[in-house]
């Protein structure tokens, strides 16, 4: 009887300890993640966000990366190569990769794939989809931009009017408009043309714009103009603080929220069939301020209030 009591007590303690412990999922030994992405791993934007997320996963999974694959055929070859090599999770990080991914995923039913940014799993049981509510961070930073502008003119530089970029630009515009600012936006027509992004920023500078934002890899061209002209900048996808002290804040994607869940599912034998969204509510999106910029306290408070409003549903970003 006494032995049973001790065993029961030990079991209860084990349960409590398990409940109180770190609940992050750890990758099993030898787990491999293959990432196929369009731009460089350190682009301070889209590709870097997924690489950073994979690198913080517990258990030190082996991260294999094929970056700089703007060419969809090349990306398809890389995706197929990872699947054929037995990589446990193949991430096709680019909505443009949907065509080849749909075909390859059917050829490798025992391999888990993840595809973003989208919510479409093609109805396949081995494909996860993920996307970001980039309009949420865009909206908050738009509100901040309206509070910081002195000329009341704000400019936004986007690549192509689609997907994550459009969502962000629309969110930023809505936030800035809610603060009473004049907003101009431009889509350059290219994700990679840095010189064109620079021209767009120069155009904004000539129109007395004193706060700008933009999304995609080519915005470094616009940030250069902002730096020269003393125009404030808001970043997205990754923390862009190292681009200078004109960067006020950045919306940062924490894809690890998605990857941890996918990792857990794979270990439970579920290879796909679900879609995810990161947002403020699930901490998949966070706002990171640039320490080098002296942000007024009232603007920071306004940002935090707006985030709370988005979380509780009292503020709509649309």
């Amino acid at each position: 009887m006494r032995l049973r009591s001790w065993l029961a007590l030990l079991a209860a303690m084990a349960l409590v300890a398990g409940a109180c412990g770190d609940d992050s999922v750890s990758a099993p030994e030898g787990f491999q993640i293959g990432i196929v992405a369009p731009s460089a791993t350190n682009d301070l934007a889209f590709t870097q966000s997924i690489v950073d997320a994979a690198n913080v996963l517990a258990g030190d999974p082996e991260i294999l990366i094929s970056d700089g694959l703007f060419n969809i055929d090349d990306a398809g070859s890389a995706i197929r190569g990872y699947a054929a090599d037995g990589v446990d999770l193949v991430i096709a990080h680019g909505s443009q990769y949907g065509g080849p991914l749909q075909e390859i995923a059917q050829d490798f039913p025992d391999t888990a794939f993840a595809w973003g940014t989208t919510n479409d799993t093609f109805g396949l049981s081995n494909v996860y989809a993920y996307e970001a509510a980039s309009d949420e961070g865009g909206y908050v930073m738009g509100v901040m931009a309206a509070a910081l502008t002195e000329t009341n003119n704000i400019g936004i530089v986007g690549p192509i009017e689609t997907g994550d970029a459009k969502l962000y630009v629309d969110g930023f515009e809505a936030g800035a408009l809610s603060g009473g600012a004049n907003v101009s936006k431009v889509y350059t027509g290219s994700f990679s043309d840095v010189a064109l992004a620079k021209q767009a920023a120069e155009a904004f500078a000539s129109q007395d714009v004193d706060v700008m934002s933009g999304t995609a890899q080519m915005v470094v061209g616009a940030v250069g103009v902002a730096d020269t002209e003393g125009i404030l900048w808001f970043g997205t996808q990754s923390n862009q603080a190292e681009l200078g002290d004109i960067v006020v804040a950045s919306q940062v994607y924490k894809w690890e929220v998605v990857l941890e869940d996918i990792l857990s599912n794979i270990q439970d034998g579920v290879l796909g069939g679900q879609s995810y969204e990161i947002n403020f509510e699930n901490d998949g999106i966070v706002l990171e301020y640039n320490d080098a910029y002296d942000l007024p306290g009232d603007v920071e408070s306004l940002a935090e209030e707006t985030i709370d409003g988005i979380k509780d549903g009292s503020i709509s970003t649309g």
């Binding site: 700089g68 990679s192 840095v194 010189a195 061209g221």
Partner: peptide, 14 residues
């Protein structure tokens, strides 16, 4: 081009 832009990026010449 790179010095005028103040940055380098993959395929910067586009």
């Amino acid at each position: 081009l790179a010095i005028d832009l103040g940055i380098f990026q993959q395929n910067i010449t586009n």
